[in-house]
Structures are given as structure tokens and as C-alpha cells.
């Protein structure tokens, strides 16, 4: 029984080690026996060390559906990044600099840490807004102008993240 437990605990980081080893193989392209052995040992050691950290931090609610929804999410986000850049460029190069900065705060209905972190990053990438502090479920966001604040408080990004992670009240997950 003890032996089986020991073998199981040695095998636990194996999936992560395989992923790391594949990545290492693609990146280095080493084919000699000694090189491959070195890569395999290193991949296993790194997986073994970081496994404890990952197991504690990974959210158990993550599932395959979210991975499937992710490409669409990334596409919408990329559109937001391009819009944000256009907006910032326009404001920065305009001679009068039409800005009226302010810090605004709002409470989010998202509960899990992953969702809140994603929302904070998404807010930073949308036009004219940068998340400066996240305290519990309260977001403090620096806005460059009034219209950015209004756009932020409509909560489009929040609904998008809620849709990605299937969280919050059901009627909030629709993207408008």
C-alpha cells in the first residue's frame, strides 16, 4: 500500500512533465540521446517542483467548455485592444489632449479568483481604463475621460468574462 502511494505521488506531475518536455523538444530541436535524456530529467524535475503550487492555485471549476469558448473571447479582446490603441493615439497626439482623468470604483458579481483576475486584465486592455486596485470584489479603475467611465460602468466586459467562466446570475451572461 505504501509502495503504491509512493508510485502514485511520483506519477502525479507526469502530465505536466510531458507537456513541458514536448515544449522543450519543439524549442530546442535536440536529437542526441544525451540531450533528450537531459531534457526529460529537467522537465520532470520542474514539473515536480511546480506541481504543488499549481494544484493549490488551479480553480477546480475550469472545464473544457471554457477552453472551447476561449478563442471567441480572445478575438473580442483583440478587437478591444486595437480600439484602445486607436483611442489612446488619438488623444495623445491631439494638440489639446482631451482628457479628464478620474478614478472610479464598482463592485463585481464575479466570485472566483480566476474570473476576477481575467476581468482586471480585460479592463486594462479596453479603451481608456486601467485597473489600479482590486479589493475583495471591488474594482478601482483609472479612466482617462468621462466616456470611458460610462462605457466601463455599462459592464460589457464583465458580462463577457461571466460568459467565459459561466459565473454570476444567468441573465447576466448574455453579450449585448
Amino acid at each position: 500500500m505504501k509502495l503504491r502511494n509512493a508510485v502514485a505521488s511520483l506519477a502525479l506531475p507526469a502530465p505536466l512533465a510531458v507537456v513541458l518536455f514536448a515544449l522543450w523538444g519543439v524549442f530546442t530541436g535536440v536529437t542526441s540521446w544525451s540531450g533528450v535524456a537531459l531534457g526529460a530529467v529537467t522537465a520532470y524535475l520542474i514539473a515536480r517542483i511546480s506541481y504543488g503550487l499549481l494544484r493549490r492555485r488551479l480553480d477546480p471549476n475550469l472545464n473544457v467548455m471554457m477552453a472551447l469558448r476561449f478563442p471567441l473571447f480572445a478575438l473580442v479582446l483583440f478587437g478591444e485592444i486595437v480600439k484602445a490603441n486607436w483611442d489612446v493615439l488619438k488623444r495623445v497626439f491631439a494638440p489639446t489632449m482631451p482628457i479628464s482623468p478620474r478614478i472610479t470604483s464598482f463592485d463585481s458579481f464575479l466570485s472566483s479568483d480566476v474570473a476576477k483576475t481575467t476581468l482586471a486584465n480585460c479592463i486594462t486592455l479596453t479603451p481608456g481604463t486601467v485597473t489600479v486596485e482590486l479589493d475583495g470584489s471591488r474594482f478601482y479603475v483609472h479612466c482617462l475621460a468621462r466616456e470611458h467611465e460610462e462605457e466601463l460602468l455599462k459592464g460589457r466586459m464583465e458580462r463577457l468574462v461571466a460568459w467565459l467562466f459561466a459565473e454570476g446570475p444567468p441573465d447576466s451572461r448574455r453579450i449585448r
Partner: peptide
């Protein structure tokens, strides 16, 4: 705070 905007956006893109 305003200077954060061009750094996080302009630079990355």
C-alpha cells in the same frame, strides 16, 4: 496614472 494608459496599450500592440 494617465501615463499607464499609453504604456500598457501602445507598447504592447
Amino acid at each position: 496614472y494617465s501615463r499607464l494608459h499609453p504604456v500598457t496599450k501602445g507598447d504592447t500592440l
